[in-house]
Amino acid sequence: MKFNFLYPSIQKDIDEVENELKLAVSDADAETISEAALHLLTAGGKRIRPMFVCLTARLGEKYEPVLSRSAATSIELIHMASIVHDDVVDDASLRRGRPTIKSMWGNHIAMYTGDFLFAKSLEYMTRVKIEKAHLLLSQVTVELAVGEIEQIKDKYNFEQSVRSYLRRIKRKTALLIAASCGLGGIIADLPEKLDDKLYLFGYYVGMAFQVTDDVLDFSQDEKKLGKPAGEDLSQGNVTLPVFFAMQDPLLRKRIERVTETTSKEEIEHLVEAIRGSGAIEKSEQVATDYLNKAARILDEFGNRKEVKPLRQIIKMLDKRDY
């Protein structure tokens, strides 16, 4: 899903960020790592995080394109690094329809590629001479790491609570999107109250984004997902559709038998059962509720033209199917 066609005014920003990402991963002294990072970059992506930085940075009296693009590049590099590490932990072979770095170069190269991308993100943030921005990004990155550890600890734990799931996706996904919006507000030099509102807006969008991702893991096929349907369940990651599906006692018993050795055929049968349980629709409503909360926050910014693209993104996210 590409969003930038909605607002040509930031096309230059997105193009510049894309160029900076290519420069960031191109390092003659680290040829193998650079090749691996470029493999991930060219697989594409929604670039929703840098987009939010550039859009929210426009809400101030004066737009700072250089600072915005640097912060946007940094936050996308953090996201890319987390993806690489995620694929190692999950032993994932496909990402965005292409082989993962770990499946092509092995775990060692993949882990160091992730570290390389994290280091590059720090390099780009040095261009933003605002202490508050650095504190925000460092805090969120710590939370991201904690979220990843929580996911590892809770694999195949079908007794965990929905609250644990929501806290985990907040740390793994929502806070980085929240930081994207908060960084834009900081760069725009908005009053702290408004910057906090943007951060909360991003949090709600991020929660909806991850819940929708978890829904799509069951509702779409491998061709559209770029990975096998039901892969989260197969890897032991208990997501919102699974919680809703386990409200059916018989289906819960089947789901609780899932382990690392569960066959692909059984996962496929479970995917079909979850699709027919009403869990998808209930989860979609949760995502919509989060987006509605995000939309209400934007009401506090009035009818400014800079707010319109943010509203358009909410509408598109509510309809996305990949």
Rank of each mutant, 00 (worst) to 15 (best):
T262M: 10
T262F: 10
T262E: 05
T262P: 08
T262I: 10
T262G: 09
T262V: 11
T262K: 12
T262A: 10
S263V: 09
S263I: 02
S263D: 08
S263N: 04
S263A: 05
K264S: 13
K264A: 11
E265T: 04
E265P: 03
E265Q: 12
E265K: 15
E265R: 15
E265S: 14
E265W: 02
E266R: 15
E266T: 12
E266G: 04
E266N: 03
E266M: 14
E266P: 05
I267N: 06
I267Y: 05
I267D: 05
I267R: 09
I267S: 09
I267P: 08
E268P: 00
E268R: 15
E268Y: 00
H269R: 15
H269Q: 13
H269E: 13
H269A: 13
L270R: 03
L270I: 01
L270W: 01
V271Q: 07
V271G: 07
E272C: 04
E272Q: 14
E272P: 01
A273P: 05
A273E: 14
I274D: 01
I274F: 07
I274H: 04
I274L: 06
I274K: 12
R275A: 01
R275I: 02
R275H: 03
R275T: 01
R275L: 05
G276Y: 00
G276R: 01
G276Q: 05
G276T: 00
G276V: 00
S277Q: 12
S277K: 11
S277D: 06
S277R: 13
G278W: 04
G278S: 10
G278Q: 06
G278K: 10
A279W: 04
A279F: 07
A279Q: 09
A279K: 12
I280R: 06
I280A: 01
I280V: 02
I280L: 01
E281S: 14
E281N: 02
E281A: 14
K282P: 04
K282G: 07
K282M: 13
K282V: 02
K282I: 03
S283I: 09
S283E: 06
E284A: 02
E284R: 15
E284F: 00
E284T: 03
E284P: 04
Q285E: 14
Q285M: 13
Q285A: 14
V286A: 05
V286T: 12
V286G: 08
V286R: 14
V286D: 05
V286I: 13
A287E: 03
A287H: 11
A287C: 08
T288D: 11
T288N: 12
T288C: 00
T288I: 11
D289T: 12
D289H: 11
D289G: 06
D289W: 08
D289L: 10
D289R: 13
Y290A: 08
Y290S: 04
L291E: 07
L291W: 08
L291C: 09
L291S: 12
L291R: 13
L291T: 07
L291Y: 11
L291A: 10
